[in-house]
Design a protein around this nucleic acid. Structure first.
Lengths: 194, 194
DNA sequence: AAAAAAATCAAACGTTTGTTCCTAAAATTT
DNA sequence: AAATTTTAGGAACAAACGTTTGATTTTTTT
């Protein structure tokens, strides 16, 4: 039976703090010193228990191979696409942003700069960056990124009577109607610098 | 004279990838294997050079003590404030978000949930989270967080004829005019989950 | 082609490290 | 109070590690 003494929590906090300050994990002996524990075996046991509880990651037989659970997803900002080029080529990655994974989760995310004011009614402004989940299908009402004439456009998606409607959220703009359209993602978020 | 062979860049990329995948840094020998370098001394030299160039952090005499330059700032989401309570008490921290520091930089940031539609004209919607820089003064035109009747409100700030005007960005709402108002921050960004 | 400089390597040294095994103390249960 | 379980410590081992030194190969310059 495992008790929840304050000691193991102290170790957990020490590890968190150490990693945050140094960028790499403490050794078992450094934890000993930091938490006033006299035996490396004790710390060793604690680390394994913290790993069992899922609070940290720990590799066996490797030095300082302890890490915290990741809370960021790294997402590329995909730049303007040259005609005919594949969108997700590494050359189109302008930068990388680390987003909070407790806010934006999922695989295959990317970011795009917002251009124009076609989605202004739902608060997407020129210069905003949208977070997009890579997918080639969409449900009615989704906000999607579509590839029209080799350039990426953001609109609300509807499918009606076999036609695809790309609806701008801007009262001064009319719907675009297509027989077919290549969807390259669904917008799941937005980030803005004021 | 230091040359820029492809080898050292390969080492840098390997380290980045390794850390991203494992959460802790590779050892010198793991880099040897990963980059097909036969001598640990070579890798050792490269790591020191990468550190000199400022691309990585490296501690001496410690195992796996290599880390990447931080690219996240951890920011607390400050919750609803009970009357009379200090705003920035730890008890009011509902959660922590890791924001990309290449997008939101600076000290003393916090986040707030957006309530109401008083700033709808500049694209701040109910449920959005705003990123705020802690400060007690503001310039004309800034979007600020002010403390009115013990609750935090977001408005555009103007000072005119000795009065403070808090201006909602919503055509249906009138300005609020005060003799004095406690400013607790300036809005520098926004993040939305759709 | 020779000389100089830079890059890479091989081998070894002394630490630091994770881990194990067993003992000792403290807390809990009987 | 004795027995049992839990928690912590001591000591040691073998492996992995960062680092140093000096030689060797490759590249560049003369």
């Amino acid at each position: 039976m495992r008790a929840l003494t304050g000691k193991i929590d102290e170790v957990f906090e020490f590890v968190q703090k150490y990693i945050k300050e140094n960028g790499y994990a403490p050794s078992v002996r450094e934890i000993c010193r930091g938490c006033e524990i006299k035996s490396t075996a004790t710390v060793f046991t604690y680390l394994n228990e913290l790993a069992d509880r899922g609070l940290i990651n720990k590799a066996n037989l490797k030095n300082r191979a302890v890490s915290l659970k990741q809370n960021v997803t790294t997402v590329p900002l995909v730049g303007i696409v040259a005609a005919g080029q594949p969108i997700f080529a590494t050359e189109n990655y302008e930068d990388f942003y680390s987003l909070p994974s407790n806010f934006f989760s999922g695989e295959d995310l990317y970011m795009l700069n917002v251009h124009g004011d076609s989605m202004i009614k739902i608060g997407m402004y020129e210069g905003d960056k949208i977070i997009v989940k890579k997918q080639e299908t969409a449900d009615n009402g989704d906000i999607v990124v579509a590839l029209v004439d080799d350039s990426a456009t953001v609109k609300r998606f509807f499918k009606r009577d076999g036609k695809v409607i790309l609806h701008p959220e801007n009262d001064e703009m009319a719907d675009f109607v297509f027989d077919n359209v290549k969807i390259i993602g669904k917008v799941i978020g937005l980030i803005r610098n004021i």
